[in-house]
Every structure is written in structure tokens, then in C-alpha cells.
């Protein structure tokens, strides 16, 4: 029910905490995993750890031509692309008053536009095969908002709206499009918080701990699996109970 044997998955941002954990989890479920990110050396290290059934495909998703080329490479080397995990993303936090157009646009480009381009390229093959899974990693702040993250929150909210629309377009073709919205997960992105911020944060999480990348990876594997065939257009919140929506 949860086996991904024979499937090919592409994970963007596989050099990050959640991306690497997701790649490992999909691989463990039996999938061939294509890993992409900007840092080739880290991708190679992850590939060496995984061993077989790995495709290494470094790419910079800020480049408008990169998504189509990436999908073509994976379909060429892996034979098909069955599961797309839009995980790559970055933040450039500052209050809106100080946020320049470039700060806004850079985050939108990588966190929202690149996932759309990847989905558009990947859908073609998925629709033909009448099977496909697109899972995008959004964030709790895409639903709740967060001071200092107008760009990031807009991109993540955009992923949710985009996924609902795509889900409606392709539902009859056996392709599901869903979102996983993590709360605060221990990664390089949240290591930047100071002790006071961390304590304040934990007081708002009923589970009283930060999430782990594996907490998120499990949700992705579920949505990618045959078990979730009738789940589409949904946002699965994985946040230790921090927001129950």
C-alpha cells in the first residue's frame, strides 16, 4: 500500500534537511530517486549514501530553463517521472517596509514559479501514464502569515492555491496534487533562531518540540503512495499541533 517500487521520484532542494530526509524516505519505500539542488558535492554525498536507484541532477531553479531540462533529464535517465516533490525554497526575511522588489521576486521565483514550471513539465508524462503524484512543501506561514516573511508566506500560500487548481485539472488522469505544510522543523533555516525565540516558539507547540525532517518526510511518502490515491488538492499540516486548521 505504501510501496513505491518501480516509481521514479524527483526531489528538489535535496541538499536541505527536509529534502534529504524526503529523498531517503522515498528511496526506502522503493523509489528511484532523482536528487537536485545547487550544491553538487552534497548531492554526490547523499547519492553515495543511498547507493543504487539514484540520479544526481544539480540545477539552479532560479534559471527559468532549469525545470524543463531537469524533468527531461530524469525522464531520460529514469525512464519516467512519477513523483515530483517541490521542496526547494529559501527565505529572505525582512519587514515589508524594507523589502525591495528584488527580495520579493527572488523568493517568488524559486519558491513558487519554479514549482509551477516543474509541475507543468512533469504533468505531461504523468497524464499519459494515468498515474502521478505532485507534492509541494509549503509552510504553516503560508496559511497563518508571519511578520517579516511577506515574500515567503505569499509564495507558500501560492503553492496551496496552485496545487488546488492543478488537482482539479488532472484528477481524472490518476494524478494527485497535494501540499505538506510543515510547522517549525529543526533545519539550517530554523537554527538561525536565538534561544529566546526558540523558547517562545516551543511554548506555542502542543507537542513541545521542534519537528524533525523525518516528521515531514513521512507525510510526503504517504501522499506519494498508492494509499493516497483519493486524496487530492489537500494541505496536510504537520506541525506538532501548533495550528489546527
Amino acid at each position: 500500500m505504501f510501496s513505491l517500487e518501480g516509481k521514479v521520484a524527483l526531489v528538489t532542494g535535496a541538499t536541505g534537511g527536509i529534502g534529504a530526509a524526503t529523498a531517503r524516505a522515498l528511496h526506502q519505500a522503493g523509489a528511484t530517486v532523482a536528487i537536485t539542488g545547487r550544491r553538487a558535492a552534497e548531492l554526490e554525498a547523499l547519492a553515495a549514501e543511498l547507493g543504487s536507484r539514484v540520479i544526481v541532477a544539480p540545477a539552479d531553479l532560479a534559471d527559468p530553463a532549469a525545470p524543463a531540462a531537469l524533468v527531461e533529464k530524469v525522464e531520460g535517465e529514469g525512464g519516467s517521472l512519477d513523483i515530483l516533490v517541490n521542496n526547494a525554497g529559501f527565505t529572505r526575511d525582512m519587514l515589508a517596509l524594507r523589502m525591495g522588489d528584488a527580495d520579493w521576486q527572488a523568493v517568488l521565483d524559486v519558491d513558487l514559479t519554479a514549482p509551477f514550471r516543474l509541475a507543468r513539465s512533469a504533468l505531461r508524462g504523468m497524464m499519459k501514464k494515468r498515474w502521478g503524484r505532485i507534492v509541494s512543501i509549503a509552510s504553516i506561514v503560508g496559511v497563518t502569515g508571519n511578520a517579516g516573511q511577506a515574500n515567503y508566506a505569499a509564495a507558500k500560500a501560492g503553492l496551496i492555491g496552485m496545487s488546488k487548481s492543478l488537482a482539479q485539472e488532472v484528477a481524472t488522469r490518476g494524478v494527485t496534487v497535494n501540499v505538506v505544510a510543515p510547522g517549525f522543523v529543526k533545519t539550517a533555516m530554523t537554527d538561525a533562531l536565538n534561544e529566546a525565540q526558540r523558547t517562545a516558539l516551543l511554548s506555542r507547540i502542543p507537542a513541545a518540540r521542534m519537528g524533525t525532517p523525518e516528521d515531514i518526510a513521512g507525510a510526503v511518502v504517504y501522499l506519494a503512495s498508492p494509499a493516497a490515491a483519493w486524496v487530492t488538492g489537500q494541505t496536510l499540516h504537520v506541525n506538532g499541533g501548533m495550528a489546527m486548521i
Binding site: 505531461r124 497524464m127 499519459k128 485539472e169 488532472v170 481524472t172 488522469r173
Partner: peptide
């Protein structure tokens, strides 16, 4: 055919 079929046909 539905609208999606026609797009697929064109492709």
C-alpha cells in the same frame, strides 16, 4: 472528449 482530452490531443 473533455477539455483536458482536447489539450492532450493537440500535444
Amino acid at each position: 472528449a473533455d477539455s483536458l482530452d482536447t489539450v492532450e490531443l493537440v500535444m
